[in-house]
Design a protein around this nucleic acid. Structure first.
Lengths: 164, 164
DNA sequence: CACTCGTTTCACAAAGTTGTGAAGACTGTG
DNA sequence: CACAGTCTTCACAACTTTGTGAAACGAGTG
């Protein structure tokens, strides 16, 4: 049961979720590690993560480096041991991951250059300008998403420690 | 000038935009073809697209099949010719692409199973349930995005033929 | 200060993706 | 009804990505 039993429903969840995230650009192994830790009530050591997933220590090392870099995973040394333990951060990584995305910013900037290159008065230029405006709108919506989410949670009584 | 001159600002726009889209999961060549057509005031034949991009007919064939399948490109036969011509659809492909995305639906479903597997009362289960709720919220926001966008455009006088 | 255990780095192998060339299929025309 | 011009299909080669094993590294301990 310690090693990744593909019939274990929890392991299935980890793999499926990781796959879904990999499909939108997340490194595969990082996603697997992330959801493995997320699925555990207690912090896990690198060895435990590797064991559960059935992957090498090297793979775990790379994944946790990636995840800690973006604050999606917290690393803490285990007292009286050489090991580190990994746990989820207190504030949920997915909020920032979604709301801080800069994809649309890139689209907007490139489209802006496109309009200039095509000429704002051409049909093509107008078409690209329209696309740019749409992405600006989407970006604005995303920018306000986090606040609206928090407002809703506050309204339904789901206040998190430290939250207004 | 017909073949993809990498110093042509329009071609630069096409390649940059395509790259940005490829990074979020779109097939690379399909994105290149899409923005090539989008950058042209007039419809283009497959040969013209291939020439502008400097890619093989086979690559164009695969890309237009993909794009027409999703309604992102319109194919129309050229009268008195064996050729087909490709043009942009009348209503903008990106609106549907963004608003019809089912990514979050997948996340939600998988997370739902995860909660069941972990047990809703465990710490891990609660954590995953919270993530699921966030994604439900995001999905709802996206569902209403299209209407809000249209409302805004209507308000600023940008009505499109056939639009309410 | 040498030893041990855990982690990290690195070169490489396996697997997956992407676009090509060439051959085949289809369609309208002389 | 044969031909020519387009488009499509397919096997393959180039490239990219991903994870492994092995070796190096480093921190705590006797």
């Amino acid at each position: 049961m310690a090693t990744g039993d593909s019939h274990d429903p929890v392991h299935l969840f980890v793999e499926r979720m990781a796959l879904a995230f990999a499909e939108v650009g997340s490194p595969r192994m990082a996603a697997r590690v992330l959801f493995t830790v997320m699925s555990s009530d207690d912090p896990l050591t690198a060895a435990e993560i590797g064991e559960r997933l059935g992957v090498s220590a090297a793979a775990v090392s790379g994944a946790v480096r990636y995840l800690t870099q973006f604050g999606m995973l917290i690393r803490e040394p285990v007292p009286r041991s050489r090991r580190d333990r990994y746990r989820m951060p207190d504030n949920p990584w997915y909020e920032a991951t979604i709301t801080k995305t800069m994809i649309y910013k890139t689209f907007i900037d490139v489209a802006e250059d496109g309009v200039a290159a095509l000429g704002a008065e051409t049909q093509a230029g107008e078409r690209v300008a329209e696309m740019r405006d749409f992405f600006i709108f989407v970006q604005e919506e995303i920018d306000s998403l986090r606040e609206r989410w928090r407002a809703r949670r506050a309204a339904t009584g789901h206040l998190r420690p430290g939250e207004v």
